[in-house]
Design a protein around this nucleic acid. Structure first.
Lengths: 151, 151
DNA sequence: ACTTTCCCGACCTGCTTGGTCAGGAGCGCG
DNA sequence: CGCGCTCCTGACCAAGCAGGTCGGGAAAGT
């Protein structure tokens, strides 16, 4: 139930790409803008490329750019690209688990957990992220003081 | 963003304890009821004990039982006991992260993610789990067909 | 040709996951 | 008391992941 450095880095780099107006952005510029180790970032960007989220070109005028418009790329897309499926239990998707005995209804809990994760991650696009204009599901939750409480 | 075997086991064992009406339940009975490796389960139960969620007694009439009524123990309590804090990013709580540049609003996303996780995990008690009468947040999500779709 | 930049596999250290093993300590009972 | 039962605890272990670094290769531009 934690967010890895890789996923965090990936979203931040993608946000930087979404904000860039024209042309390819070099890896080193992304790394510096978001304070990410360059060589690690290159591996992450390669994964994003393999998942069709970014494109890249080598050489003097090379760099990375988004493969799709920023409002068509969600945070969920990026997290799945670098972390794999969201909210799997014991490496199997919640809809495929079968519980016996008194934990029979636990499946419903994990399904609800995944659904609520998706409700945020699939709703926020890179365009939302850079503009700061979040979908209502986020603004509502963020406006609740309890959401900020440590526990 | 995944649920570990340990957390899954822990909740299932706790559900079994919640369902048991009388007296201490032996480890081996929990292990068999939920098909969990016994020695691994004992370590998990020990952690739950250290977190004040279960109690135990040794000897012939020994076993484990819940330290509190089943309707006062939430799934979140158990997950936190065995997995640590929920939805930390790079091992730091989302309210403590500071983002710069174009990812400035990413903090709000992680806050919303955590809040939505809590909305499920802190709402479901062991009593709900064994009775099958889930809180509305769960039944609503589970009733949505999309929640069951793989992606 | 030569530089720049991405591409990509190998490697590395340390920690986590999902366990097993061996023994010790408390509890109840005859 | 002695004895068996059950939990308690630390040590260990194999595999994998996290979070990187290193070194070289391949395309793009000039």
């Amino acid at each position: 139930m934690r967010v890895s450095a890789k996923a965090d880095y990936a979203v931040r780099a993608a946000a930087e790409l979404a904000a860039a107006e024209e042309g390819p952005i070099k890896g080193i510029r992304l790394a510096e803008a978001q304070d990410i180790p360059l060589q690690f970032l290159e591996h992450i960007l390669l994964e994003l490329k393999h998942h069709g989220i970014v494109r890249a070109r080598r050489g003097a005028k090379g760099g990375y750019w988004l493969a799709k418009p920023a409002d068509e790329v969600t945070v969920a897309d990026i997290v799945r690209a670098v972390e794999g499926p969201i909210a799997h239990v014991q490496s199997t998707p919640p809809e495929a688990i079968e519980y016996r005995g008194n934990s029979e209804h636990l499946q419903e809990v994990w399904i609800a957990v995944r659904a609520n994760l998706r409700a945020v991650l699939e709703e926020v696009t890179l365009a939302d992220l850079v503009s700061g204009e979040m979908p209502s599901v986020v603004t509502d939750l963020v406006a609740t003081p309890d959401s900020w409480a440590a526990r």
